[in-house]
Simulated scan of single mutants.
Amino acid sequence: MTDVAVITTGGTIGSLRGSEQIAIDEGSAVLNHRLTAMAEEVGVPVRIMPAANRESSEFEAEDWMIFADVIERCIGEGHDSIVLTHGTDTLHFTAAFLAVLFRDSPVKICLTGAFYPPNHEASDADANMRAALRAAASDSLRPGVYAAFHDADCDGIGVIPATDLVPPRFDEAHFRQLYADLPHVTNAVAQAQSIFTKIDWAKLPRDITSDGLKRAKSQVATALLFPGIDMRIYDSLPTGGALLIEGYHSGTASSARTETSLLALHERRSDLVLAICSVPSPNVPIPYAGSKRLKDAGVLVYRDLPLHLLLVAQMIGTGQGLTAREALAAFDAYLI
C-alpha cells in the first residue's frame, strides 16, 4: 500500500487543553504520536509532513498556497492519497481553495480536524483522524478534495465534498429539525458527490500565486448584514473591488432607497460588484420581492451558494487579474 501523506497545519486537532485555555502544541509531539498510533490502528502507513502549526483563525489567504505547495510536493513524490489536518474555524475556506486548484488531479485529498483537542475527555480528534486515513486509503473514494470525519451512520467515515462543506451554525440540529428538506451532505465513501453540479469550473483559474492572493485581499470585502447597517462604510473599497454579502436566512437584504442602503451604495459606486448569497431554494423556491428588486438594480443575488465559495473564487480571480465580475462568472447558473 502506498503511504498516505499526512500534512499537519495545527488547529484544535494539534492543540492541548490547559487549565485556562486551549493552545497549539508547539512541538507537535502529541499530534504526531497520535497520528502514528491511529495509522497503526487502521493499518494505513503514513508519512507526516508539517506545513504550519497555528490556529486556523490566524491563517491568511496566502497560507492556502503553502498548503497547496506541500500537496504538490506530495504528488510529485508519488503520493495519491493525502490527509491534511486543519483547524475547524476556517477549514471550509481552505477546502474550497484546494477544490479549485486540484479539481482535475488524480489524487484524493481529505481534510480533517477536531472540535475538542486530543487531551479533552470528549475529544473527537482520534476518531476523525481514523476516518480521514481510512477515507484517503479507500479504493471506493474517487479522486477529489473532501472533508472526512467520524460518522457512525456511515460505517465510521463521513465524507463531504470540499465544495459542500459549510461552517457549523448555532444549534444546527434544531435548525435542521425546522427545515427538514435541507440536504444532508455527509456521505459514505462511495456516495461522496458534490451537490454543486452547476459550477463552470473552466472559468476558475488555477495558476494563482501567494503574491496574487495577497494583492486580492485589498480588493475584496465581505459583510454580514444586520438591520439598519450603514453601507457607506464600504465606500472605502478600491475602484473595481467586490463586496460579498451573506444575506438573511432566506437570502434577502434590504432593498430600501435611503442614503445608507445597499442600493444607494450600488448607485454611488457603480464600479463595485455587489453580490448577495444565498436564497435557499428548498425553502424559498420563489425569491422574495426585495431580492428581485436588488437583482433588477444590478446586484448579483445567488441561490444555494455559501459565501466562502464566492469568496475563494473572487480571491483567486482577482489575484489573477480578472475583473470582479469575471471572477464570479463560474457561478452564473446560481443567479436568481
Rank of each mutant, 00 (worst) to 15 (best):
M231T: 15
P238D: 00
L244R: 10
A221G: 05
V220R: 01
T239W: 14
G247M: 05
M231C: 11
G241V: 02
T239D: 12
R232I: 07
S218A: 02
I229N: 10
K217H: 15
P238N: 09
L243Y: 06
F226P: 13
E246L: 06
E246Y: 08
T222S: 11
Y234N: 05
R232P: 14
Y248P: 12
I245F: 02
T239I: 14
A216S: 09
T239V: 13
R232S: 13
G247Y: 01
Y234I: 04
M231N: 09
Y248M: 13
G228D: 01
P238A: 07
F226C: 12
G240F: 10
Y234G: 06
L243N: 09
Y234K: 00
P238R: 09
I229H: 11
A223I: 12
L224D: 14
E246M: 09
L213C: 08
L243I: 13
G228H: 03
S236P: 09
L243K: 04
Q219W: 02
A221D: 02
E246G: 15
K214F: 07
G228Q: 02
A223V: 10
I245N: 04
K217Y: 12
L224Y: 15
Y248N: 06
G247T: 08
D230S: 06
T239Y: 15
I245P: 11
T222H: 10
D235F: 06
R232W: 14
G247H: 03
I245R: 01
V220T: 04
A221F: 03
T222K: 09
A221I: 04
S236M: 10
Q219E: 01
P227L: 00
Q219T: 10
E246T: 15
G247C: 01
G241N: 01
L213R: 06
